[in-house]
Amino acid sequence: DRYEFNINGVHFTIDDAEEELIKLIEELLKRGARAEEIEEVIRRWER
């Protein structure tokens, strides 16, 4: 599934997002994580 979200006006799209990654990102968003922090999480996840 495609997952899309915005952080401070920056648009992100993840194709074939796994449910666990989506939950992790949503938790980070609730905590007010910065875009750079979430980008790093996504990079690590994709390795």
Rank of each mutant, 00 (worst) to 15 (best):
E26N: 10
V10F: 08
E37N: 04
E27W: 15
R34P: 13
I22K: 05
I22A: 04
V10R: 06
I42C: 03
R34E: 14
E46M: 12
G32N: 10
E37T: 07
R31A: 10
R31M: 13
H11V: 15
F12T: 02
K23P: 02
F5R: 01
I14T: 02
R31F: 14
G32H: 08
N8K: 03
E26C: 09
I14A: 02
R44A: 14
V10M: 11
I25E: 00
E19V: 11
T13D: 04
E26H: 12
E26W: 14
A35V: 15
A33F: 06
I38W: 01
L24V: 14
F5Y: 05
I25D: 00
Y3N: 02
E37D: 10
E27Q: 13
I25W: 00
L21H: 02
E39Y: 12
R43L: 13
E40D: 12
E36N: 08
G9R: 00
R31K: 13
N6Y: 12
E37C: 05
H11G: 07
R2I: 09
N8M: 06
I42H: 01
W45A: 02
H11E: 10
F5N: 01
E18Y: 04
T13I: 15
E37M: 07
R47M: 14
E40W: 08
A17W: 05
E19W: 11
E4D: 06
F12I: 06
W45E: 02
I14L: 10
R2L: 06
G9L: 03
E40G: 05
G32Y: 08
V10I: 12
R47C: 07
N8W: 04
K23A: 13
E18K: 09
Y3T: 03
F12A: 00
Y3W: 12
K30G: 10
E19C: 10
D1T: 14
R47Q: 13
E4V: 04
E19M: 09
D16G: 15
V41T: 10
I42N: 01
I22F: 04
E40I: 07
R34F: 12
R2P: 10
L28P: 00
D15P: 12
L24I: 13
I22Y: 04
R43A: 12
W45V: 01
Y3P: 02
T13S: 14
A33Y: 06
R34Q: 15
I38Y: 04
D16P: 13
E36M: 08
V41D: 01
T13F: 13
E4T: 05
K30F: 15
I25R: 00
E46S: 07
N8Q: 09
I22C: 02
E27C: 15
I7Q: 04
L21N: 00
G9F: 03
A33I: 05
E36R: 08
I38R: 00
E40K: 07
E39I: 15
F5A: 02
I7K: 01
G9M: 03
D15R: 03
R43T: 08
D15W: 15
V10E: 06
E40M: 10
E46L: 13
K30A: 11
L21M: 06
V41Y: 09
L24M: 13
K30W: 15
N6K: 06
G32W: 05
I38M: 07
I42T: 02
E4F: 03
D1G: 15
V41H: 06
F12E: 00
D15S: 07
L24F: 08
I22N: 01
L21R: 00
L21D: 00
F5W: 04
V10G: 02
E46G: 10
K30D: 09
R34M: 14
A17P: 14
R47D: 06
R31G: 09
W45Y: 10
R31D: 07
R44S: 15
R2D: 03
E18R: 03
R2G: 07
G32D: 08
I22R: 05
R31H: 10
I38A: 04
D15V: 14
G32V: 03
I22T: 03
E36A: 11
R31S: 11
E36V: 08
E19Q: 11
K23N: 12
